[in-house]
């Protein structure tokens, strides 16, 4: 019992865990917003090229970005962005974390959107064309709303994945949830409670969000 007391109460260590949790959530949500923005941008570039054969260079750059991000570890991307790109800047480390995980997430989100668009029945595009609608109108009013709905479950998964992936942010000195557990452990010389407690918090977070998303999906399909 004294071990648990030392882990959480002594020296107000629960505040350290709460602060870590706060940072984890801030980085995850910030990164997801950036990721969705990048994902939309990449999707627009890719579709623009596929439909009108315009902006070939942008299209190749977008594909290159997706390939590089998906083909390298997120920790390495984080380190490159922190140690090389933002080497001598005084931007808050949390912001750097958000940017790094956002850039990482953007590649995955763009793939989610691409799959969503491809999953819309091609008859929908043809019906739009046969009614005389322009490509952009068909995309905006017919394809994208359906693609977005198809993409929602995968976006939810990406959210959950991001929560877990941000645990490597401690590597560049961000005190997020995992790092805060680690710090407490190094002070109490006991790893059991700090690590199990942080793991449980992750579990509650991810399971809770998964359940919430399931509910949202169900409500949506009944509409």
């Amino acid at each position: 019992m004294t071990e648990l007391y030392k882990t959480l109460i002594y020296d107000q260590r629960y505040l350290l865990i709460l602060n870590g949790l706060k940072n984890t959530i801030i980085i995850t949500i910030g990164a997801l917003i950036i990721g969705i923005a990048i994902g939309i941008l990449i999707t627009i570039v890719q579709n623009n090229y596929k439909a009108n054969k315009k902006n070939k260079l942008l299209y190749y750059l977008a594909n290159l970005y997706v390939k590089i991000i998906r083909g390298t570890p997120v920790l390495l991307q984080l380190m490159i962005i922190y140690y090389i790109i933002f080497k001598s800047s005084d931007i808050s480390i949390i912001i750097i974390g958000i940017i790094a995980f956002g850039i990482n997430s953007g590649a995955y989100v763009s793939e989610i959107f691409r799959t969503g668009i491809e999953a819309v029945d091609k008859g929908q595009m043809e019906a739009g064309r046969s009614l005389g609608l322009k490509y952009r109108q068909i995309m905006n009013y017919i394809i994208l709303p359906q693609a977005f709905k198809i993409s929602l479950p995968a976006l939810g998964n990406e959210f959950v994945t991001l929560i877990k992936e941000t645990s490597v942010a401690g590597y560049i000195g961000i005190i997020e949830l995992t790092k805060s557990g680690d710090i407490i452990a190094s002070r109490t010389y006991n790893y059991f409670f700090p690590l199990i407690i942080t793991a449980l918090i992750y579990l509650v977070l991810t399971l809770g969000i998964t359940k919430l998303l399931k509910k949202l999906e169900k409500g949506d399909s009944n509409a």
């Binding site: 029945d121 008859g123 739009g128 017919i142």
Partner: peptide, 13 residues
């Protein structure tokens, strides 16, 4: 020139 499809292709959403 209108077109009617075998699978209707109504906009599902």
């Amino acid at each position: 020139i209108g077109m009617i499809f075998q699978n209707y292709n109504l906009f599902n959403h």
